[in-house]
Amino acid sequence: MSAAPPLSRLSVNQETIKQWSLPELAEGCAKEGVTSVGLWRAPVQAYGVERAARLMRESGLAVTSLCRGGFLTDTAGAARARALDDNRAAIDEAAALGADTLVLVSGGLPPGSKDLAGARERIADGLALLGPYAEERSVRLAIEPLHPMFASDRCVVSTLGQALDLAERFPARQVGVVVDTYHVWWDDQAPAQIARAGAGGRLHAFQLADWITPLPAGVLLGRGQLGDGCVDFRAFRDLVDAAGYDGPIEVEIFNEALWERDGGEVLRETAERFRTHA
């Protein structure tokens, strides 16, 4: 098993310390020596995209990813057009922030539909339109497979294999995948698919969160702090490193208990857990 990664590889996703404003995030990361962050569109838009980009630059923070684009499974013409326009806007925002990766949560089944294959094909149709647009702006689209419990309402792409089957229809400089331990820790095919992603140059992002049970109501906010659950983070990091990934390792945790605590305490704990477990 490899040694702990240097702190320079840690990227703290904004949602991990959701209670902080963007200026508080920038100030807190500076205090703790964290040099990279992952951002989310809604708080960035509320603060102002250009203003947020300037804050990140002046704070010396690299933006490792922007979340999220996607939701490309709609069948209705107007809804689909809105989704494509929203994704183009997300790509523009990522470019403005200096983020080279836009994370895609692909979308669930449209109301009344049971057609998983059709939904996945509509994702490919959307990627065909969005990939060149993203490449022109030096942004990569990264398909994030979500745990199967989210397939109906949030993401019909449930495994790395499914994500790569979509991504490989397009150039790697346009479309790749996210490896998020929370979503793929259970999949015995994940090691082979991580190697496949690395061989194709499609490992665009690596995110960490632990799996803890019982899951809360609504399940979305059930991600655990590193070390609190059953995920072997060091084993996953060895896999992505062996696949040629040497980029940032982003800690992305949605957890109300963390959000109720002091943000500085959560950041210090996250950095310490990263050193211990990643």
Rank of each mutant, 00 (worst) to 15 (best):
M1F: 11
S21F: 11
G28M: 08
E32H: 14
V37G: 06
V37T: 08
L39M: 15
L39H: 03
R41Q: 14
M56R: 03
R57S: 12
E58V: 06
V63T: 07
G69V: 00
A78G: 08
A78Y: 05
A81N: 09
D86I: 06
N87P: 08
A95H: 04
A99Y: 07
D100S: 15
P110I: 10
P111A: 15
G118Y: 04
I123W: 02
D125Q: 14
L130P: 00
G131A: 15
V139Y: 00
V139P: 00
E144Y: 09
V156A: 05
A167R: 04
Q174S: 11
V175G: 05
G176E: 09
G176N: 02
V178P: 00
V179K: 01
T181R: 03
T181P: 01
H183A: 07
A190G: 11
P191K: 07
Q193K: 11
G200E: 12
G200M: 11
L203N: 03
H204G: 12
H204A: 15
A205K: 07
A205L: 14
A209V: 03
W211Q: 13
T213K: 14
P216T: 05
Q225N: 12
L226E: 00
L226Q: 03
D228N: 10
D232W: 10
I249K: 01
I253A: 05
E256Q: 15
E260R: 15
D262L: 06
G264E: 10
R273H: 12
T276P: 02
